[in-house]
């Protein structure tokens, strides 16, 4: 580290820039006062308030329904697509097309889906958010699995077929296990992206089933409250745990 010299300064300042805002919110979530900026002592009361908030609880349940559903569908579609692109076509255009939903600006995708759902007369609700989340989700899964397919030896599949295994058996006993780390990583990616996704959900959700990000949006528009601080602290803890767990899992399965 000595060799870094003066470069340590921008590094430390950047970490301070990234973590001080978050740390301030977490510290303030333990403030017992109702006034957000006056510290009167340590308390967990706002976490209690949070647990009793039915809007937050319902929002959380709605978000889980969307995230779990979108993750399952996107993982299946994205994995099949990645294998298809690697094994059955060499088309760079098709591959670019399949990965586009991951880079289209979320606002453009959001208004496009809103327009389409209304053109076919679909009522908006959790099902439309789920359908919308699958489209960028499958592109992310396909991207991650495609990267892994480049490292997997296709002669294993050939050997399995030569030894008399059916195509289906080869797929489930050779192809899928060798891709497992990438499939898990892709699924975790979609799950975390869907949990936090706001813009597309904001446009494609119905008024009676807000997801958690939409509930948070309606809360933060009215300024700073101790309850939002507590909610922020909980969400930070959850996402940091998921990211670190994901890192561990992919490293663990990669080494097998």
């Amino acid at each position: 580290m000595r060799s870094l010299g003066w470069l340590r300064l921008p590094l430390l300042l950047t970490y301070a820039f990234l973590y001080i805002p978050i740390a301030v919110v977490v510290v303030m979530s333990f403030n017992s006062s109702k006034m957000p900026f006056t510290w009167t002592g340590f308390s967990l009361r706002w976490y209690g308030t949070l647990l009793e908030d039915t809007a937050v609880r319902q929002g959380f349940l709605n978000t889980m329904v969307v995230a779990v559903g979108a993750t399952i569908i996107a993982t299946v579609l994205g994995t099949l697509l990645a294998i298809g692109l690697a094994r059955y076509t060499r088309s760079a255009v098709l591959e670019a097309y399949a990965l586009t939903p991951a880079i289209v600006p979320d606002l453009a995708l959001a208004i496009g889906l809103l327009v389409m759902f209304s053109a076919v007369g679909m009522t908006l609700g959790l099902h439309s958010v789920l359908l919308a989340h699958v489209v960028f989700g499958l592109a992310f899964v396909a991207a991650v699995v495609t990267a892994r397919l480049g490292q997997v030896d296709p002669s294993l599949e050939e050997a399995s077929r030569d030894l008399g295994a059916s195509a289906t058996a080869t797929f489930f006993r050779i192809t899928v296990p060798s891709l497992a780390p990438a499939i898990i990583a892709g699924a975790l990616l979609v799950f975390t992206l869907s949990l936090d996704e706001f813009v597309i959900a904001f446009f494609t959700d119905g008024p009676s089933t807000p997801t958690l990000p939409i509930v948070i949006y309606s809360m933060v528009r009215f300024g700073v409250t101790p309850e939002i601080n507590a909610l922020a602290a909980v969400l930070l803890l959850v996402s940091f745990t998921v990211v670190i767990a994901a890192q561990r899992i992919t490293r663990l399965t990669d080494s097998v």
Partner: peptide, 14 residues
């Protein structure tokens, strides 16, 4: 990887 709205909210506080 934390929620975008929460990260923006942190600056309303700060």
């Amino acid at each position: 990887w934390s929620n975008f709205l929460i990260r923006t909210y942190a600056w309303i506080v700060l």
